[in-house]
Design a protein around this nucleic acid. Structure first.
Length: 657
RNA sequence: GCGCUCGUAGCUUAAUGGAUAGAGCACUGGUCUUCGGAACCAGGGAUUGCAGGUUCGAGUCCUGCCGGGCGCACCA
């Protein structure tokens, strides 16, 4: 039961007698800001009063006169400039909670009236590279949206659009042909391919730095120095002088930055040259950057040898990814990577050309779009296709194969321009009925405010990250268990399992509880903080509830089957009951805006309500048996709601911790 | 230079144009013969970057400025 949706229906009926289109006004019915304003409030009288030219309080009264909510609400109150405050009836509230209790699988959450077909594109790592910290957000947010939308009755297809066809394979192929350690490849193929990738990547970076970046930076330093050396024109007034001084300061800062960048790059190049292994290889392969591109091009052109190698490497790489997904409990319906669409790209370009949407410019096939400075290039001068081409082919495939109504991309915000152009092109192309959303998020930053890297400048592997989180969780679990007054109660095995749930849960929750397009600051300490708005707090709340049942020797079946009316006399009981009922609202809001943080907010608030209840209302020691049962049932629904809510976020709960 | 995005308490942050900007961390004080103290309660701490504007009402929408992050044809 979604109480908010029900109230909105009632308001729609009342408002339709007063106004042509009640929809925008109905949206102004919402949960109250504070308990003093009741449980729900309607803010529609003010704008309607404006519209009708009548005093808002008068309008509020005429809405209330037409409103039929006697069955679920106390008499509505009109407050302030014209707010309508609603308070749910105690017995109605009790009935709704009982209905949720009677439905342990769905907790009385209704399915969407109009199920849609979603395709969610998330995670999307490059198979040749290990997943790193930047992949967490996409993976975790995407997976939770899949869960929530599916739970609400939508048809959801999850698709991991992996990068299995790009330059990184050219690197591995080149590395394999030139640098492989045959013995290592035989015994540890993944590790050896990883080593080859890193080695070649380093050598390519070296050559590109030597040939392009370093000269470019050197030139920049020169022009910036020259610009600073130019004599300043005499400022006309004080304001201009200030402006000029500021501009000069900025220019100085820019120069310093460029110099620093140049020095850092020079150091890096020097380090490669001085390296015992990489140094000689760099000297022996001066054109490795071009040669790698050649290997990639040969793969794309169907070269037998490269194709064979690709087919040999790919399963190995995929298995490595699969290990990580298994550990964090993420699965996909499909993993149709870039290579899957390879055969369709030429057709896409032809079709766009034929429809007059694309034309050749400067040798490249481009789609020029209104409102964009640059075109979207779908075929390079040398004939190669780009990711824009692949993305268009992918969209077409998803509409044709999955009958998608909506395609969601969980990708970091740096690609927002790309998606804007992609969607605009797709709409011109005829996909104008399709909802396309770029669910963007910020870059993962370290606590120093720079992209999260190790001290040596490498990106941090996801495996290491998980290990560290679980390790820290394990230490805390052990400490806590050892400190229990009745002695430790977890076996070594159980401690491991709990640490896994707590560590990985903390990592996921930290990502899910933020909804920022700005950058995300990664911090072990913050995500693993075992109090506050964290997964651990929720898991702990759950474990505490469960322990009541164990201690009180309570039968769950009895709780589920009980039929007596719930007693909600105590304010904390009532507040908890109301919060439990809002689960459905939280899920709908999460689905409507594709924002898992609305669900984490809800769960945190629920845990908070439970804490207050737990503190103020004795359960096992309640005054009467009836009250004891009623409170136990509230506990039971709380535990179930926490468990289900966390499960939808991809987070496990435990019985004891 | 053009574009996107963000700026809320010391820190991390919440808030579909609605009432007194809500939390957590940290800080201060309190609760306890523990239905699990990884807890709870209370308190201090915010001109929501600045200046205008729209509105009955602005953290939210518009304009300008300041500051951070990111992106700007043939990488993904």
């Amino acid at each position: 039961m979604n109480v908010l949706a029900l109230l909105r229906q009632r308001f729609a009926a009342a408002l339709s007698e007063l106004v042509e289109d009640p929809a925008p006004l109905v949206d102004l019915v919402r949960p109250s800001q504070g308990a003093q304003f009741g449980d729900y409030q309607a803010n529609c009288a003010m704008p309607l009063g404006k519209q009708l030219g009548k005093p808002p309080r008068e309008v509020a009264q005429s809405i209330v006169d037409r409103l039929e909510v006697d069955d679920l609400c106390e008499t509505p109150e009109i407050a302030g400039p014209g707010f309508i405050n609603l308070r749910l009836k105690q017995d109605w509230l009790a009935q709704q909670v009982a209905a949720a209790l009677a439905d342990p699988r769905r907790l009385a959450v209704e399915r969407a009236e109009q199920p849609r077909n979603f395709v969610i594109d998330f995670s999307a790592p490059n198979v040749a590279k290990p997943m790193h910290v930047g992949h967490i957000r996409s993976t975790v947010i995407g997976a939770s949206l899949v869960n929530v939308l599916s739970f609400l009755g939508h048809q959801v297809t999850s698709d991991n659009h992996i990068g299995d066809w790009g330059t990184q394979f050219g690197m591995i192929i080149y590395g394999y042909k030139n640098f492989r350690d045959a013995e290592a490849y035989r015994s540890q193929p993944v590790a050896e391919l990883g080593r080859l990738y890193r080695l070649v990547s380093r050598l390519v970076d070296y050559q590109e730095g030597r040939k392009h970046s370093l000269p470019e930076l050197t030139a920049q330093v020169e022009t910036q120095t020259a610009a600073l050396a130019e004599p300043a024109t005499e400022p006309a007034d004080e304001k201009q002088a200030k402006k000029a001084a500021k501009a000069r300061k900025q220019a100085e800062n820019r120069l310093r930055e460029t110099q620093q960048k140049r020095a850092a790059l020079a150091d890096k190049l020097g380090a490669v040259e001085a390296d015992g292994e990489a140094g000689p290889l760099a000297a022996a392969h001066p054109n490795i950057d071009a040669l790698v591109l050649e290997e990639t091009a040969k793969l794309h052109a169907g070269d037998a040898e490269n194709r064979r190698l690709w087919e040999e490497f790919l399963p190995v790489c995929l298995e490595e990814l699969e290990k990580t997904y298994r550990r964090i409990g993420v699965t996909f319906d499909h993993a149709l990577g870039e290579s899957f669409y390879h055969d369709r790209l030429a057709g896409v370009v032809d079709d766009l050309k034929q429809r007059g949407l694309a034309r050749t410019s400067d040798g490249a096939v481009c789609v020029f779009l209104d409102g964009f400075d640059v075109p979207m290039i779908i075929q390079k001068r040398d004939g190669a296709f780009l990711y824009a081409t692949t993305d268009l082919a992918t969209l077409q495939y998803r509409v044709e194969t999955f009958a998608a109504d909506a395609v969601l991309y969980v990708v970091d915000h740096r690609q927002s321009d790309h998606f804007k152009m992609l969607f605009a092109t797709a709409r011109l192309w005829g996909l104008d009925q399709l909802e396309m959303e770029h669910l963007s998020f910020g870059t993962v930053m370290g606590e120093d405010g720079k992209p999260y890297k190790t001290r040596s400048g490498d990106t941090v592997g996801l495996t290491l990250l998980l290990d560290e989180a679980v390790e820290r969780a394990h230490r805390i679990v052990c400490e806590n268990d050892d400190a229990k007054p009745g002695g430790a109660e977890l076996s070594a095995d159980e401690r491991r399992q709990v640490a896994e749930a707590v560590g990985i849960g903390a990592l996921k929750y930290a990502d899910l509880s933020h909804n920022r397009t700005s950058d995300y600051v990664f911090s072990y300490d913050k995500m693993l903080a075992m109090n506050g708005n964290t997964a651990t707090y929720m898991q702990y709340a759950h474990a505490r509830v469960r322990s009541i049942f164990a201690r009180g020797d309570v039968s769950e079946a009895e709780l589920a089957a009980a039929s007596a009316e719930l007693m909600l006399e105590h304010p904390a009981e009532r507040a908890l009951a109301l919060e439990l009922l809002r689960f459905s609202e939280a899920l709908d809001a999460t689905a409507a805006e594709y924002r898992p943080n609305l669900l984490t907010n809800y769960l945190f608030q629920l845990a908070d309500c439970y804490s207050a209840f737990y503190q103020q209302c004795p359960v096992l020691k309640a005054e009467t048996d009836a009250l004891r049962l009623s409170r136990l049932r509230l506990c039971y629904l709380t535990a179930n709601t926490l468990r289900l809510g966390l499960a939808l976020l991809g987070i496990q709960v435990v019985e004891k911790m």
